[in-house]
Design a binder for these strands. Structure first.
Lengths: 217, 217
DNA sequence: ATAATTTATTAGGCATGCCTAATTTTTTAT
DNA sequence: ATAAAAAATTAGGCATGCCTAATAAATTAT
């Protein structure tokens, strides 16, 4: 059994607060963390007492300014460590998350800033997510066509330009939606098609039109 | 209040097993960790159950092979991270220990080896302690006269050659013993004396003879 | 050898964070 | 609007690791 720190909960709530207009309920947090709603309710009380969140059955959980600050610091550390693990230690894209999940909880006032400097102040992590800056500001995710992503890189679907039923059905079949991660394996020069990998599924070939219809960030 | 993991205990026992022929008692471990002997007794039971140590009131605690392996891995990670913090992130000598104490518990099979490679397979950490190799082997600490240490570096007293009562009394007054860390602040060329700092005490000037009488490693 | 001191151990409790199994509340479907 | 389903909460417990206070055992000093 895993045991979660306050920071884990704050980060989970932060994540949920981005995706959705949906209210952040004990159940949704429990799903995010893979634990029990009853445990979540316990923790929501503690976080409320510490003024890190506000919670109301109707409105769900919301980070206070203090809670947001902490959550963003954790996210900042997480993403910086991911860059470190990939670029400096040579880990693969898929291995870094779990390690960064541990590293994000290392406490030291200067650590994030020193790491940031050491890594050359990267703006995005290897998953394409923006790295919060020292002042807490988070860059708006820069959106490009999937087509423009270089082979070897990964990205996250931010928007879909072609809203035809046929296309959306196709995406659904592939398991692609907003937020889905796509890795560009190869680009085929002669027809502009590309070989991509959706999550951990098999590699597939998609057309140039496909690459132009998806915005990634 | 701090709470200690198994790894913390194993590392403490490992440390104690190096210094001393003295038996490793609950009290000595509690002093090492700054906690309560009663807590230590609790944990010794658990570690014994897991076959990480053997414990006997008479003989004290001893690491089993399994326990030694774990302890050495933790030490390896600790010292590698110290090198990283000092060399790559530019932390000062005195700041790295506490952070490395957190980093040493990050778990990932390849982490130590990747970090080791990234750092160029260093043999010693910034405190002069040898970094255990991937196979668990630990270099015998290379001993030199204190006199030969370059200004700016720190070292740890490994042996004392002059055993005269006068000298030992002098060392005692300075708080210098086996294991004491000394930082060389400056060397005075004309008479071979040196300015040193013992732990966090004030800087003091010691003679050339002093520098020749202490072996550091 | 006995007394005094120090060390080790046990007993009993506290806090944290988890769980399952009720129970209550809210939402959804008929 | 009522019944059924889903979600939130509470109650009661477990495990971990810590503590203090009391007791037992071992060491040291007289």
């Amino acid at each position: 059994m895993h045991t979660f720190s306050e920071e884990n909960y704050l980060r989970a709530i932060y994540r949920l607060s981005l995706d959705a207009k949906a209210k952040i309920s004990p159940t949704s947090i429990a799903e995010e963390l893979n634990n029990n709603p009853a445990s979540v309710v316990d923790m929501l009380k503690k976080l409320t007492d510490k003024k890190l969140i506000s919670y109301d059955k109707k409105k769900g959980a919301k980070l206070t300014d203090k809670g947001t600050k902490t959550a963003i610091e954790v996210v900042r550390k997480h993403r910086l460590w991911e860059v470190f693990l990939l670029e400096k230690l040579g880990y693969g894209w898929e291995e870094i998350h779990d390690i960064a999940e541990q590293l994000e909880h290392i406490h030291n006032d200067e650590l994030a800033d020193r790491l940031d400097k050491f890594l050359g102040f990267p703006d995005y992590d290897p998953h394409g997510d923006p790295i919060p800056k020292a002042n807490g500001k988070i860059a708006t995710t820069y959106k490009t066509m999937l087509l423009e992503v270089e082979p070897g890189n990964s990205c996250q679907v931010a928007a879909v330009k072609d809203t035809s039923v046929a296309f959306l059905h196709y995406l659904e079949k592939l398991g692609v939606g907003i937020g889905t991660r796509i890795k560009i394996v190869e680009k085929i020069a002669f027809d502009g098609s590309m070989v991509i990998q959706v999550g951990k599924a098999d590699k597939i070939n998609v057309s140039k039109k496909f690459g132009e219809s998806i915005l990634v960030g």
